[in-house]
Design a protein around this nucleic acid. Structure first.
Lengths: 361, 361
DNA sequence: ATGAAAGCGCTAACAT
DNA sequence: ATGTTAGCGCTTTCAT
């Protein structure tokens, strides 16, 4: 209550610019203890809501703490505690799927009484750097989401601390893996398209991206089973990659349906196609992967293979916690979750005759 | 010394799953010191690369540290140091502009010898929570990027620790602000369109989002100056908002040019327009804001108002460092950076006659 | 129920 | 150049 505005009991009210420098001395446990007339240990008990303090003291201490604007120092806490209860996460900034996963991770972690430490990868900052930072923060375990470290590096990490690699296949047994059955997802996508009457189904793959090999394999297998001609175009994980593939498809005569490595790729592809006058889904059906928020946008309305993000996050955290707390219920290192197809508006029944093909501007 | 582990130089090589639980005991300074036969202080000096150790010792200690896989504990370091040199950042995951800013912040911070702590906001996790986490980590100063906290809360934060709000206007003098001259950006956009012959220029605004009011105001002012009729449509900061606005524009007869609150909004709008058979830029010109990587995608190729992200990041960090280190060169609390228009392919000269308008499907 | 004391892993004077 | 000694802010036995 006292924290909101400018008034209150005023200790917290400071003038950072009065002296130019903002010597914001931290309010410590000691301060609270002194003011409340008790020992630090007792204050510790109270603020942690641990047993061992009378209601009266509890109330008084809490009041003082609030008054002073006391905020526990997480670091000191970690240092003093045997355990840090910190889970480190490497994430690729600006990647919708990662954003979704992290959001779920926050929930799962909190549920289990753990905190999350984030470290971003990006241009000039690879997963290795991110991992180093996380380890330096005393993360007890790592969640590798960024996906751009070589397998050997991942294995090395797994040998130091419990780690789970999310949404990526890894051979090494040094790390746990929680991923989606990518091949099955693509298989479902193919089946859906076949049921709609499509036969000319292309796959814009993800190149060397996480899961790309499996998705490609799933496509090949499914097409073979349906006795259909395969057509794989090199794509990638970004919109730009999808756009490039789209242009290539345009040049070489587009199929009637495309399954893309992921939603971002599909969006890039669709953009190029639509700008060329090809209608989705009337002229061509498009399927993405991830069911990220991109796919759900009303105007995109993309049929896509959904990964069960919530379950992946929950499983990831549970797995790590089990390892950390020594109750290895799961002995297998790999969990493969089934995906499911979310049918939206970007796929449709094959029209006997193509409307008008390209509209030459 | 007996604690080092299982002997040999291969101490770092562990089998986390041998016993089910991964009791990964940390390698401490003490361990290295014992093994190298020197004091902890000396090891500390060496690993920090601080002056006060002979080359010989330095080499030996480093070798041992490498052998043991020693990794300094950032927390303990922070706790022991007078200063933490940690800058906390609230960021909205999955927001392209934020991703760009954070990337630059990492660079600027490193340059100044500071580290970044990230805390994400998202569904079920507001900026307040993120700030709490950051403060708990002992951040010496805060960089508020997420932008969804009420002003009063921001002011409260600024009163506790040096803070700069990025890319958002704030009245309170309790926080520093580094932002772009949003109104000027939009003014440049209008000028560009007018030069191309446009007169029916609409603005899809950002509602209550950061900077939206200024951009709206810039639009109104510019249009008034050019003696053009104003048309403001409610938008928002996401693709979805842009799409909605696009549909509205479609219903009520589209203008010949649109200036959007940001790139994401512009992309959503364009998608809807293009799907309706309207060509960009032949039939309608579209301008975004931010020059995020979205705008640079080859198929989007969006004319947009660029914010100087690099400079914003540098300024933000410098400002904070100045306050922290007591050299308040800048007394003003607010820095407003000039934006500049990046002309790409989504804007073009007005065609005298409209091609064919909507293509009724 | 409360307090005293011993660390957690590190840095920073201050000796030597 | 190297070692000693205090802490940093907190948790945790162990007494009282």
């Amino acid at each position: 209550m006292s924290q909101v505005g400018s008034g209150g009991t005023a200790d917290a009210h400071r003038q950072p610019d009065a002296d130019g420098t903002a010597g914001a001395r931290r309010v410590t446990l000691q301060d609270v203890a002194a003011r409340a007339g008790v020992s630090r240990a007792l204050v510790s008990i109270v603020v942690r809501n641990a047993p061992g303090a009378s209601e009266a003291t509890r109330a008084r201490v809490m009041a003082v703490a609030g008054d002073l604007g006391y905020r526990p120092d997480v670091n000191a806490r970690l240092l003093a505690r045997r355990r840090s209860r910190l889970l480190g996460v490497t994430v690729q900034l600006g990647h919708p799927f990662h954003a979704d996963v992290v959001t779920s991770l926050y929930d799962s972690a909190e549920e289990q009484g753990y905190e999350l430490a984030l470290s971003a990868t990006g241009p000039g900052r690879d997963e290795r750097r991110a991992v180093d930072a996380l380890l330096g923060y005393r993360s007890e375990a790592l969640i590798l989401l960024a996906g751009d470290a070589p397998e050997a590096a991942l294995a090395a990490v797994g040998r130091r601390v419990p780690a789970v690699v999310v949404a990526r296949r890894v051979r090494s047994t040094a790390v746990d893996v929680v991923r989606t059955a990518d091949d099955i997802g693509v298989r479902q996508a193919v089946a859906h398209l076949v049921a709609l009457g499509h036969t000319a189904i292309a796959h814009v793959d993800g190149g060397r991206a996480a899961g790309a090999a499996d998705r490609r394999h799933g496509y090949r297998t499914a097409m073979r089973r349906h006795r259909l001609a395969q057509r794989v175009v090199t794509g990638g994980q970004s919109e730009e990659d999808g756009a490039r593939a789209g242009r290539q498809l345009l040049d070489s005569g587009p199929p009637t349906a495309v399954i893309c490595y992921n939603d971002r790729c599909a969006v890039g592809l669709m953009d190029v196609l639509i700008r060329a006058g090809i209608r989705v889904p009337e002229d061509i059906s498009v399927i993405g992967f991830d069911d990220s928020h991109l796919a759900r946008l009303s105007h995109i309305n993309l049929t896509t293979v959904a990964q069960d993000v919530t379950e992946m996050a929950a499983l990831t955290v549970r797995r790590l916690v089990e390892r950390l707390e020594g109750s290895p219920a799961h002995l297998e290192r790999e969990s493969v979750l089934p995906p499911h197809l979310v049918i939206r508006g970007s796929t449709g029944r094959l029209r006997p005759a193509r409307a008008d093909g390209l509209r030459t501007s």
